[in-house]
Write a protein that binds this DNA or RNA. Structure first.
Lengths: 150, 150
DNA sequence: GTTGAAAAAACAGAGGA
DNA sequence: TCCTCTGTTTTTTCAAC
């Protein structure tokens, strides 16, 4: 992982559908060399996926919430979460609560119905998202002086 | 937005670098027709971006946290957040706290230093992420009977 | 890491249900 | 309007170095 790799990842973060030929022009390196570097970045697990980012509002998902859980039935809760498409993210956290989930639902009413289903797992606190200032910022636009690069 | 569009978005969620020709074979529609539908999905804002998903651990970012804030200086806090690369997500929420941020930092020590900088904005509660069970689940693998499709 | 040729994909226009 | 067909340009793949 050097500056060229960092540039490749950065370009693919900005636009995952960029042609390799365009990247190769951008960083002044031959196209097969970029292809091989990209293959290694995927193999090493630096790049784990390429995703289209979808606007939830355009799919009718108008309500977002974060929910904190305090539960003893962890295994059951994880199984429930995996089978609930409303739950987009699932984190284990330290502190008073032991789980944090991000939920997307159609309306506040459907969100309420979903939260009622969750009550069996223990105490919870719901944080309704009023607006998103930004989301999913680049991990590469940082001061890279402390990066784990050789 | 019909079933074909839904399939296109779904395929691009699974792999944003899939060739249009492969999608066209998958859904039995000509390549220019898929190209045109994709153009419209982007134009309508259903698809907002294509992103390479990067493993933060592989970049040396070993510590993730969610931080809740109770602040009066909203404008200043947003400006601070925008200029802080550690902050990946920024949400305004309802309830006792008015902001929720997701933070990625190198170590617990660098996270601590960052959190100290945040203290000027008001009261905060930090939730350290111990592990991520899943993140960024598909919005399209739902029961689409209630979808806002014609 | 580079070059160069063959294969594949994307693009742009014409025309049909 | 939405699609298919077709020729041209661009990109990817794969060989050899």
């Amino acid at each position: 992982m050097d500056r060229v790799d960092s540039k490749i990842v950065s370009l693919l973060y900005e636009n995952a559908r960029i042609p390799i030929s365009e990247m190769s022009r951008n960083i002044a390196m031959s196209q097969p060399a970029v292809t091989e570097r990209l293959r290694k970045l995927e193999e090493q697990g630096v790049i784990t996926a390429y995703r289209a980012k979808v606007d939830p509002y355009k799919l009718g998902l108008h309500t977002m919430a974060f929910v904190l859980f305090k539960t003893n039935t962890c295994k059951d809760f994880v199984a429930f979460s995996e089978s609930s498409p409303e739950i987009v993210d699932l984190y284990r956290i330290s502190g008073e609560y032991n789980f944090l989930i991000k939920v997307l639902s159609e309306t506040t009413e459907s969100m309420t119905r979903f939260l009622e289903k969750c009550n069996v797992f223990g105490f919870s606190t719901t944080l309704i998202v009023l607006s998103t200032d930004f989301e999913d910022r680049s991990l590469l636009d940082r001061d890279i002086t402390n990066y784990p690069f050789p």
